[in-house]
Design a protein around this nucleic acid. Structure first.
Length: 452
RNA sequence: GUGACCAUAGCUCAGUUGGUUAGAGCACUGGAUUGUGGUUCCAGGGGUCGGGGGUUCGAAUCCCCUUGGUCACCCCA
């Protein structure tokens, strides 16, 4: 049988894992610096928890887990005969793999509300699964690194999350643009053009502005049944130019008749004022065409794009006023962000940013000469490890050439020989694999040399 | 879910208008070198040419189906 992976699943070898871990560690360090605490939730959730939270498209992409044993016989045969794939599939499964980390987090908060001190700040680094067709920058299994805070309406949270974006990407050496918008502004715009009930259609269309252009958006709005007059007004929003302050003034003027719209402008302005007091290195861009697909966002929305590499967004997030509401806990607002580990990796690999990364691996290899020599080397090895030096011994008394090749392939910088001559002298012979130089010294001298 | 392109050794690929026994580089194993790798030289193992069917005297090559991959759309980290 030929080994293979299911579609969209990937292995990560040691080389890749070292780089991935580096990214994760950078992100975690910043999260913890801001007082976020770790959480893990299971890969599998009940479908009732997951469905209906991500919009129609999201439900389609949920990976479902087949019911166990006899239960599958209770499937909806009628749905099968009617070729209703969705209903039939739902009758076969009661559980699914998590689609993101936010909904499981909301579930956790509701289930543990009595234990939790609010505002509750948690971070979570785990895989999520989507039954999408894999392509560039898109995987069926990928890691999200989330930080969320629930139980606080303060826009200070948004400001801090923006700062987290900034610090993480500074730390990784990436240039990004952090795009910010507010769903209330989009709602206000829909209200002003008398299409409040078609908010979703409007946001989906204008979200594509940078992809299909103004004409494309106008066309799509028309196809989605937005009246001509409304489209004309929407056009004036989309063509508005100016710096962040100018845009703000313009929005105030245009949205004056919409209560929710003005609320959105006010929130955005407050956030921008907070951000102005911070020393942010990355580009902050107010982008009123930013919409975000996920249904649950209600306030601020974020999206981060890499400046020097073509790929989808590498981070995203936003505020959700009623995420825990569907689980029975009302009036708890939350806001969170998510780093797309796999895409960040793709960007950094694409830009060659891992080159300078000092990869932490074995520092010393003991050559195995077998017999008494092996026992001696094994002993010396313990001393190095105790001193915190990453060391290993070749487990077999293989040919010298093979052992040297191993050190070479694994980029181990030092090799130690403990042959008969060395055992007799009580010293060890150490070889620098880069320069080829070798010298004999005592174990003590070696310790200070290697830990330096 | 819609569409386009691709599939040859473990990996990256070559293979002429259809023509004899399908090749190269890298990797692996052995040797030149019994205690010295990363350079060199020699030898070796490894293929149902993704799978099935068809056209043909003859198919890796042409046609159909199927599976898998890549990319774009939808949507998204």
């Amino acid at each position: 049988m030929k080994p293979a992976l299911p579609k969209g699943m990937r292995d990560f070898g040691p080389e890749i894992m070292l780089k991935r871990n580096y990214i994760i560690e950078t992100i975690k360090r910043v999260f913890e610096n801001f007082g976020y605490q770790p959480l893990q939730t299971p890969a599998m959730e009940k479908l009732t928890t997951l469905t209906g939270k991500y919009g129609e498209e999201g439900d389609k992409l949920l990976f479902k887990v087949l019911n166990q044993g006899q239960k599958v016989l209770k499937a909806d045969h009628k749905a099968f005969e009617e070729k209703n794939a969705v209903r039939f599939a739902n009758s076969l499964a009661e559980r699914g793999l998590r689609y993101d980390l936010t909904i499981p987090f909301a579930r956790f908060v509701v289930m543990n509300q009595s234990q939790i001190t609010f505002p509750f700040k948690r971070y979570q680094v785990q895989a999520v699964w989507r039954g999408d067709r894999p392509q560039k920058g898109r995987y069926r299994e990928f890691y999200q690194c989330d930080a969320d805070v629930v139980g606080s309406n303060s826009l200070l949270n948004e400001a801090e999350l923006t700062q987290i974006f900034d610090m993480v990407y500074n730390g990784l050496g990436l240039n990004v643009t952090i795009k910010i918008n507010n769903r209330k502004i989009l709602a206000g715009m829909a209200e002003v053009v008398n299409c409040a009930d078609q908010l979703t259609s409007i946001t989906i269309a204008i979200d594509k502005l940078d992809k299909i252009g103004l004409d494309g958006v106008v066309k799509e709005l028309g196809e989605r049944g937005i009246p001509e007059a409304a489209i004309e007004t929407i056009k004036t929003f989309l063509t508005a130019q100016g710096d962040n302050a100018g845009m703000m003034a313009l929005l105030k003027e245009k949205l004056a008749n919409s209560e929710i719209g003005m609320k959105g402008v006010e929130e955005l302005e407050t956030l921008m004022n907070y951000l102005n007091t911070l020393d942010l290195k990355q580009t902050i861009e107010l982008d009123i065409t930013l919409a975000r697909g996920l249904d649950y966002y209600t306030g601020t929305i974020f999206e981060v794009k890499a400046n020097d590499f073509q790929i989808g967004s590498i981070s995203a997030g936003g505020r959700y006023d009623d995420l825990t509401g569907t689980f029975g806990l009302k009036g708890v607002s939350g806001v969170g962000i998510s780093f797309g580990l796999d895409r960040i990796y793709d960007v950094m690999e694409g830009l060659g940013l891992f080159q300078s990364l000092a990869i932490n691996t074995t520092k010393v290899l003991f050559i195995n000469f077998g017999g008494d020599n092996q026992a001696y080397a094994f002993q010396q090895l313990q001393t190095l490890r105790k001193a915190g030096i990453a060391a290993e011994i070749y487990p077999d008394a293989a040919k010298m050439k093979k052992q040297m090749k191993y050190a070479n392939a694994k980029k181990i910088p030092w090799v130690i020989f403990t042959g008969d001559a060395e055992i007799e002298s009580g010293n060890l012979k150490i070889k620098n694999m880069e320069t080829g130089e070798q010298e004999e010294m005592s174990i003590e001298a070696m310790l200070s040399k290697l830990s330096g």
